[in-house]
Structure formats: C-alpha cells, structure tokens
C-alpha cells in the first residue's frame, strides 16, 4: 500500500477529514480551496498533528492516534514541495539542493537517478551558484522539487506547486514531475484545485469536500 491515510482535525468551526488507501503511485487530492488539502499534507508530513486517525506511507506507520505513534517531521522522510518554494534565502541553490543530505555526501542522487541526472531533468544546472531571491517562480519551484527529491524521501508531497506559475511553465513542470515519478518510482501525493493538472498527471483522484 503506497498511501493509507485517515486523518481528522478540528480547527475552530471547521472540521477537516480525509481518508483513502491506495496502491497507486500518484494520488491527487482535489477540492475547492479552504477544504483542508494543505492541512492534510501537513498532517502527512508531521507539521500538524491530527486529532485522530493514522498515516501509513509505504507500509511504515508515521502516525497512529490509538497506538500513540507520532514521528517528528525530520524522521518521516516526506519530501515536501510547498506552494511557495521556501528555499533557504541565505544559501545558494547548490547548498539548498544538498540540505537534506548528510554533510560529507556531495554526490548522492535519488534511487537510480544521479544528482547530475536530476539536475539535468529539472533544467537547473545553470542556477547552482545563484541566490534563491534572484530566481523566478518557476526556477525556484524546480529547485524546490530537486531539494525535496535529493533528501531521498519515501514519498513526495506536492502542494499546488504550480499555483504561482503561468500556463506554459505549468505544463513543463507537470511533465517533469511525471518523468521523475516514472524514473524514481517515489509515490506522489499531489494537491490541486485545478482538475486539468490532475488529469494530466494521472493516478488516483481523491475528492475532498
């Protein structure tokens, strides 16, 4: 089972609930804004603690309310690409990419992909010595995807990564995500409110309402 997720959270008046289990390598969380898609990703990543339920990714229990299991985010190995890239502004792109790796590890890639191959696919080879504040939205988001993948995650969480990009860039990055998924076989949980993105990506669709 790639994802077995059942989380519930009360925030004031709003009740957030999301439950699905699937073997599909790509799961798309779909629904109008404000329905709790990002909160669900945060619960999977461990940034928000659910009131009840469980989070199981690739057979590993990351959270279980009844068994009192709650791994901290640092031990969940969820590569998280946020809506805004959240690159570290005081590190050049190169150091941002390697942040999720141990200190001495300068070369390691992800799965069968070498670091160089990943950088090639993402087309960020020319950006390695740039500072994040000087990148465009699309460039920053590609670096963020690379950084998340290079942390050698067991799943990839994408929170509307295309929200701030124009149409042409969107398709380009969607293609990249699909290609990276085929090459690394890392399961992807993808959040969007745009149905077309999800159709393009394929995989299972979970509708939140």
């Amino acid at each position: 089972m790639a994802f077995d997720i059942d989380v519930r959270l009360r925030r004031g008046e709003q009740a957030i609930g999301c439950s699905f289990a699937t073997d599909s390598g790509i799961v798309a969380l779909f629904g109008p804004s404000g329905v709790g898609k990002t909160s669900t990703l945060n619960m999977v990543a461990g940034l928000v603690r659910p009131d009840a339920g469980h989070v199981i990714v690739g057979g590993q229990k990351l959270f279980d309310a009844t068994a009192k299991i709650d791994l901290p985010p640092a031990r969940r190995r969820c590569g998280y690409v946020f809506q805004q890239a959240r690159l570290f502004p005081h590190m050049k792109v190169r150091r941002n990419l390697r942040y999720g790796r141990p200190r001495g590890d300068r070369e390691g890639g992800v799965g069968p992909l070498s670091q160089d191959a990943l950088i090639n696919i993402l087309g960020i080879g020319a950006l390695l010595d740039r500072w994040p504040p000087s990148l465009s939205g699309g460039e920053a988001q590609r670096v963020a995807i690379g950084r998340a993948l290079l942390s050698d995650p067991q799943c990839l969480l994408l929170d509307e990564p295309l929200a701030s990009l124009d149409e042409a860039r969107r398709l380009e990055i969607l293609e990249m995500i699909g290609q990276l998924h085929r090459l690394t076989a890392i399961p992807i949980l993808y959040v969007s409110h745009d149905r077309r993105e999800l159709d393009h990506l394929g995989g299972d669709m979970v509708e939140m309402a």
Partner: peptide
C-alpha cells in the same frame, strides 16, 4: 520565517541543525 524551519525539518534536519543552519 518559521516556514523555512518547517521546510528544513521535512528535509530531515534535527532541531539543533535547524537552529544553527537556518
């Protein structure tokens, strides 16, 4: 920006490492 510290934690960084590097 606390969200940068969050991002670092999802990349596997310990609290101590986040403190000193972020």
């Amino acid at each position: 920006d606390r969200r940068l510290e969050e991002a670092a934690s999802t990349l596997g960084a310990s609290r101590l490492r986040i403190f000193f590097t972020i």
